[in-house]
């Protein structure tokens, strides 16, 4: 069986990142889920963004099919963009996905778990912006 797209969830808060990962994996259903890693907060446990945690998470979920990175805001966005700009600081095939954090994470994990490729995962996560709530 071919590798699934890995998902990295980057939040200013470790609790938010790990909880959203848990939520997305829970909604993706049992068995055969895509690899998901949370990269929340700073390396010392505070609120913020850690390039090191992001790199570690991306490496952990990289199975060769690409890595979709979802971020919350501010420094999380800029740190991932800065790492990607260098070309060698994240695994090849890593992509920052423009998506709402919670809804996008669920869409990404469900799509990746079903065997969708990186384009499909990114598209599903981005489409979550289009779901109106009123």
């Amino acid at each position: 069986m071919s590798a699934k797209v890995g998902i990295v969830l980057v939040s200013h808060s470790a609790a938010v990142a790990s909880s959203v990962a848990e939520l997305a994996l829970g909604l993706a259903g049992g068995g055969g889920t895509a690899p998901v890693a949370a990269a929340g907060g700073t390396a010392d446990g505070g609120l913020g963004t850690s390039a090191e945690l992001i790199q570690r998470a991306a490496t952990a979920v990289d199975g060769g099919a690409g890595v979709a990175v979802l971020v919350d805001l501010g420094s999380a966005v800029l740190t991932v963009k800065a790492l990607l700009a260098e070309g060698d600081e994240l695994p090849g095939g890593t992509r920052l996905v423009d998506a709402p954090f919670v809804e996008g994470a669920v869409a990404a994990v469900v799509t990746a778990s079903a065997g969708g490729d990186l384009d499909a995962v990114a598209a599903a996560a981005s489409e979550a912006y289009g779901y109106r709530k009123e």
Binding site: G46, T49, S50, A51, A82, L83
Partner: peptide, 18 residues
């Protein structure tokens, strides 16, 4: 700076210097 700052100024100043 990108690795250690933890806020938006890290990737911004880091990108400037890099």
């Amino acid at each position: 700076l990108i690795s250690t700052v933890g806020g938006a100024s890290g990737p911004l100043y880091g990108t400037l210097l890099r």
